[in-house]
Amino acid sequence: MSETIFFYIFAVISVGMVLLMIFQTNPIVSALYLVFGFFGVAGLYVLLSAPFVAVLQVLVYAGAIMVLFLFVLMLLNLRKEDLVYDRLNWRKIGVGGVAILFLGFLAHHFTRIQIQPFFDLPENFGTPEGVGRLLFTTYLIPFELVSILLLVAIIGAVVLGKRQ
C-alpha cells in the first residue's frame, strides 16, 4: 500500500516539476525546477529497487549536469529581451496535438506488454556490488568505450570553448 502512495507522490513531483520547467521564462528557475524533477525520478528508482542508479541519478544528473547548466547560464550574462515567453501560435498547437497522439500511441503499446510480476528478487539486485559485477564482466568493453566517449567529450568541450 505504501508503495502506491510513494509512487503517486514521486510521479506527481517529477511530472509537475518538468511541466514547471518547460513553462518558465527564466532558464535559471527552470534549471532549479528540473533538479527537483530529477529527485522525483530518483525516488522512483528507489521504489523499483535500483538504489545504485538512484544514487547515480542524484550525483550525476541533479548534481553534476545541472551544476554545469547553472554555471553556463550565469556565464552567459543574458539580457532581458532574451527571456521573453514564446507566443502560442497554430504551429505550436499542431505540435502539441501530434505529441498527444504520440503519447496515446506509446500508452496503447505499453499497456499491451505482458510481464508476470515477480516479488522475490535475486541476491544483490540493484546494489553497487551487483551492478558493478555485471559492469566489469559482461559489459566490460562498452564500459571502456564509455570512458573513451567521455574523454572525447572533454577534448571537444575544451576545443569549442577556446577563444580563437
Binding site: 550525476v60 554545469l68 566517449l149 567521455l150 568541450a157 569549442l160
Partner: peptide, 13 residues
Amino acid sequence: MAVAAAEAAIGLA
C-alpha cells in the same frame, strides 16, 4: 547517463 553527461558538456560548449 554517461552519454547524457557528454551531450550536456558538448551542447553547452
